[in-house]
Computed example of a mutant assay.
Amino acid sequence: MPSTTVYNMAGEAVEQLELSEQVFGVTPNMAVLHQVVTAQLVNRRQGNASTKTRAEVSGGNKKPYRQKGTGRARQGSTRAPQFRGGGTVFGPKPHPYHHDVPKKMRRLAIRSVLSDKVANQSLIIVNKLEMETPRTKDMLELLNKLPSSEGKKVLMMLPKRDENVVLSTRNIPSAKVQHVSSINVVELLKHDYIVMTPKTVRWIELVFGEGLSAEEATLKIADEATAAETSSEA
Rank of each mutant, 00 (worst) to 15 (best):
M30R: 09
A10N: 14
T27L: 05
Q22C: 02
P64K: 11
L41M: 13
N43A: 10
E21D: 10
S20W: 03
T51S: 11
V14Y: 02
N61H: 15
A10K: 09
P64L: 15
R54V: 03
K52M: 10
G69V: 12
K62C: 10
V36E: 02
Y65A: 11
Q40F: 09
A39F: 11
L33R: 03
T27W: 01
S20D: 04
R45H: 10
L41R: 14
A10E: 13
E21S: 11
E56T: 07
G11T: 03
V32L: 11
M9G: 07
T38K: 12
A55E: 12
A55S: 09
Q16H: 10
K62Q: 15
P28H: 02
R66V: 10
V26T: 11
R45K: 07
G59I: 15
A55L: 03
V37W: 08
K52Y: 06
A55H: 07
E21H: 11
T51G: 04
G60Y: 04
H34N: 05
N8D: 15
K52W: 05
N29I: 00
E12Y: 07
L33I: 03
G69Y: 11
K52T: 06
G11H: 01
K52E: 00
A39N: 03
S50A: 06
V36I: 11
Q67G: 07
M9L: 12
N8A: 07
E15I: 13
H34Q: 07
Q16D: 14
V42W: 02
Q40M: 15
V23K: 04
V14A: 05
A49S: 06
A31P: 00
G60H: 08
R66D: 11
N48G: 06
V26G: 01
S58M: 14
S58Y: 15
E18I: 10
V14K: 12
T27R: 07
T38D: 00
Q35A: 08
L17R: 08
S50I: 02
V23D: 00
V57N: 13
R44E: 09
M30W: 03
G11P: 01
T38A: 14
G25W: 01
Q16W: 03
Q40Y: 08
E56N: 07
E56K: 09
